[in-house]
């Protein structure tokens, strides 16, 4: 009798285990499904609308078929260059401070915390702040202001990865450099940063991939431009911005271009994320063991 009760308890427990496993599998499937759906649809729609003109032509006026997004591709390039020039040096330097100079101080905890908070600030709010700082004082929308907004958004990711990567560098490596009489800054730049460079590049690429798809802060900083432009003090087009404008438009041909633009953007991002995966899987630190 007791054995039977025990046995039925066992069965129930086994069933519960199966039930939980089934639920988890189902959950994972439901999570993966939209991703596959989005990718399949994107490739299906995007590939059929991609052509040479997409890369070499600027948009046609409303109602005319054809045209491309050369302006947006060039514009995204300009914006991301400005953003990287701002975000990466500041981010890396801040990371160096946190890892090398202020491990346990109140100040560095404060900086660490603000970096995390900045990471969570909605991108559109960053856009408004940059708008009232640069666009209002300059009295016109500009590529520069868009780059600043994106650069600000890159900083926290770069900082936190730099710090983490530097902390992985063994102390003996620093001590060896200092023991040879090398000044502290030189040891940091040529030894520590170099040892952690693969990991830091990873962080920079992650930050880059993140801001490459940002639209909201560009709405009232870069603003968009139907012509190709390289000028920093003029409004400029950007790929995500152009996708947004075309996606909410009522024209079929513009929808087609929006899909093609999305495919190009995703391709860019997926390539950089996969590159990051590849680099990190080969070992984050080179030379340090």
């Amino acid at each position: 009798m007791q054995q039977r009760i025990q046995q039925s308890g066992q069965t129930w427990r086994r069933w519960k285990n199966h039930l939980a496993t089934g639920t988890a599998v189902l959950g994972a499937l439901v999570v993966v499904a939209p991703l596959l759906a989005i990718f399949a649809y994107l490739i299906y729609k995007g590939a059929s609308s991609l052509n040479w003109a997409f890369f070499t032509k600027v948009p046609k006026p409303v109602g005319e078929i054809g045209g491309g997004m050369e302006n947006a591709i060039v514009g995204s390039g300009v914006l991301l260059t400005v953003a990287s020039l701002i975000g990466i040096p500041i981010g890396i330097a801040a990371g160096v401070y946190l890892a090398e100079f202020g491990r346990k101080r109140l100040l560095s905890n404060l900086v660490r915390f603000t970096a995390d908070v900045l990471n969570g600030v909605p991108s559109i709010v960053v856009g408004i702040a940059v708008y009232s700082l640069i666009v209002v004082t300059q009295r016109h929308f500009s590529a520069f202001s868009g780059g600043v907004a994106l650069g600000i958004m890159m900083i926290p990711t770069v900082t936190r990865t730099t710090e983490e990567m530097l902390l992985l560098v063994p102390h003996a490596v620093r001590e060896a450099a200092l023991g040879l009489g090398v000044p502290n800054w030189r040891s940091t730049v040529s030894i520590t940063l170099r040892t952690a460079s693969a990991g830091i590049i990873t962080g920079c690429m992650l930050a880059f991939a993140r801001v490459a798809g940002e639209t909201a802060p560009l709405l009232f900083t870069a603003f968009g431009n139907d012509d190709k432009s390289l000028a920093l003090n003029q409004p400029i087009a950007a790929l995500p911005l152009q996708i947004f404008v075309y996606a909410v438009s009522p024209y079929n041909d513009w929808h087609r271009l929006a899909w093609a633009g999305s495919l190009v953007l995703i391709f860019l991002i997926v390539v950089s994320v996969s590159l990051v995966r590849y680099v990190t899987s080969r070992g984050v630190l080179k030379g340090a063991s």
């Binding site: 999570v31 993966v32 939209p34 991703l35 759906a37 989005i38 649809y41 994107l42 991939a209 993140r210 490459a212 798809g213 940002e214 639209t215 909201a216 995500p240 996708i243 947004f244 996606a247 909410v248 929006a258 899909w259 999305s262 953007l265 995703i266 991002i269 997926v270 994320v273 995966r277």
Partner: peptide, 18 residues
């Protein structure tokens, strides 16, 4: 795959949703 899901830009999600 789940990391990729995080890398898709918001505007592309919007386009797909629309």
């Amino acid at each position: 795959l789940t990391e990729l899901l995080a890398a898709i830009p918001s505007v592309v999600y919007g386009l797909w949703a629309l």
